[in-house]
Each structure stands twice: as structure tokens, then as C-alpha cells.
């Protein structure tokens, strides 16, 4: 479980996160939704440690990330997998080298063990016979799947997905959604998904946090969204044609 409490973040005069608090549960797909510029990406970057908030706490299963020293933070980060919006695969490495990268950096596995693990992760995301391809030579959907394979290579406890469906066709989008959902349940990962895609939310969302102008505007299960009396949330849903 990840608990975010009273997080504040400003950039110059702009107060992007205002006393933000939320809980993200283990074994569930936790969604962060909201309009562009509302603070979703900043919140996610704060949670993975790319941005340090001015105040507040971010706790990963009793480990207060902001109070940890450098080495302790690295240990937490080894438990984090992240799927980036643009996949962020390493251009200079092949598909299999991308997936093997965290294993080579953080484990004492032999080359044979690394190869086995890479093949397992790639088959888990239904990618076969692409091991030697460069990221530039595969499709957007395949890149996303390689990104997921790399994110789960070290058996993470926490999986962050930034706009996992952006730029994908509806079928591929559905495949990626199902994959993330299956992995979350199978490995009991705390998954946090930052998205605008309401279709994904209604298919796989367990816990929803609606962020508006840096504030948590609404939190609950997807079934509660339609009956919500929160005008901003309803306007957001209406604009998404749901």
C-alpha cells in the first residue's frame, strides 16, 4: 500500500499540489484521473521520487520515502516498476537487453538466469521472437509491452503507469489494460495508473482518485462515479462521453 499525506508542491508562484492525501491499495488498479494541468503527473513524479515535494509524506508499506537516506531510497526504488507514456525504452539496447537491464544492474544472476527471466517476462506480455529487435523497429503497442516486461523484471511491489494507452488503437489498448490488470492481481502489486482513458477506468479500475486543480476532488470505487454529486467529476465524465 502507498499512502500519500498532505503533499504540497509549488513551482514558482504556482501551487500544483495542495495538501494532497490519498491511499493506493495492494493488488488493485488505483487510478488517478483529472484534466491536463491538474497535477496528476506531478503527483506521480513525487511518488516515484523524481520530484521532491515541499511538505507531506509518501509511505511505501511503512517506509516514509521522503525521510529515507539515499541508499534506503534506492532500496525502495528497486521495488518500483514504471511504464512511461512514451515507454522510455533505451534506444541503444535491443528489446531483450532493455528487459535484462535492471536484472544486470541489480541482481547477481548468471547470463543464463537473466536470459530465462527475460524470456519469461516477454512471454508474459505475449511478445515472442522480438528479442533482438531495436525499440525503433517495433510498434507502439509492442513498445508498451516491452515497457511492462522491463517494469516487472525485478518483481516490483509497486507499478506506476503513466498514460498506458496513449497513442494506441482500441484493441491494443484493451490488451495493455488486461495485461496490467492480470499482472496486478497475479503478483499482488500496488498499481497506480495515471490516465484520461475512461474506458480503461471502467474496465479495470478498482480505486479512483479524481484530482482537480491540485486538490483531491473525489475518491472512491468506479461504481460510485455516476452517482457522485461532484460537478467537476461529472463534467469530466461527460466530456469523456461516459
Amino acid at each position: 500500500m502507498i499512502i500519500v499525506e498532505n503533499v504540497n508542491k509549488t513551482f514558482g508562484n504556482k501551487h500544483v499540489l495542495k495538501d494532497f492525501s490519498a491511499k493506493f491499495y495492494k493488488g488493485k488498479c488505483n487510478f488517478i484521473i483529472g484534466a491536463s494541468g491538474g497535477g496528476k503527473s506531478v503527483l506521480m513524479k513525487c511518488m516515484v521520487g523524481l520530484i521532491t515535494p515541499e511538505t507531506g509524506s509518501i509511505t511505501f508499506d511503512d517506509r516514509d520515502f521522503l525521510k529515507l537516506n539515499y541508499k534506503e531510497k534506492i532500496n525502495v526504488r528497486k521495488d518500483i516498476g514504471m511504464l512511461f507514456q512514451n515507454t522510455a525504452l533505451f534506444d541503444s539496447l535491443s528489446v531483450e537487453e532493455n528487459v535484462a537491464f535492471p536484472l544486470r544492474m541489480f541482481t547477481t544472476f548468471t547470463e543464463e538466469e537473466i536470459s530465462d527471466r527475460v524470456n519469461f517476462c516477454l512471454s508474459r506480455v505475449n511478445l515472442i521472437n522480438l528479442n533482438k529487435f531495436a525499440p525503433s523497429n517495433i510498434s507502439g503497442g509492442q513498445k508498451k509491452r516491452v515497457g511492462i516486461a522491463r517494469a516487472i523484471a525485478l518483481n516490483p511491489k509497486y507499478l506506476f503507469c503513466d498514460e498506458p494507452n496513449s497513442g494506441l488503437d482500441p484493441l491494443t489498448s484493451r490488451l495493455i489494460d488486461e495485461l496490467i490488470k492480470d499482472i496486478t492481481i497475479e503478483y499482488q502489486i500496488t498499481t497506480i495508473i495515471n490516465t484520461h482513458d475512461m474506458k480503461s477506468l471502467f474496465v479495470m479500475g478498482d480505486n479512483i482518485v479524481f484530482i482537480h486543480q491540485g486538490n483531491k476532488w473525489w475518491e472512491g470505487e468506479k461504481e460510485g462515479i455516476r452517482s457522485s454529486e461532484n460537478n467537476e467529476l461529472l463534467a469530466f465524465m461527460e466530456a469523456s462521453e461516459f
Binding site: 516515484v48 531510497k73 532500496n75 526504488r77 528497486k78 512514451n86 522510455a88 533505451f90 534506444d91 506506476f160
Partner: peptide, 17 residues
């Protein structure tokens, strides 16, 4: 620079590298 703008540097940081 390309690694930076395509979030590859962020990916390294998040991995704890």
C-alpha cells in the same frame, strides 16, 4: 539530451541508478 527528453534518464533514476 535525447535520453533526457524521452524520459530514459527518468527511467534510470526510478530504477535507483
Amino acid at each position: 539530451g535525447t535520453m533526457k527528453v524521452t524520459e530514459q534518464i527518468d527511467a534510470l533514476e526510478i530504477m535507483g541508478i
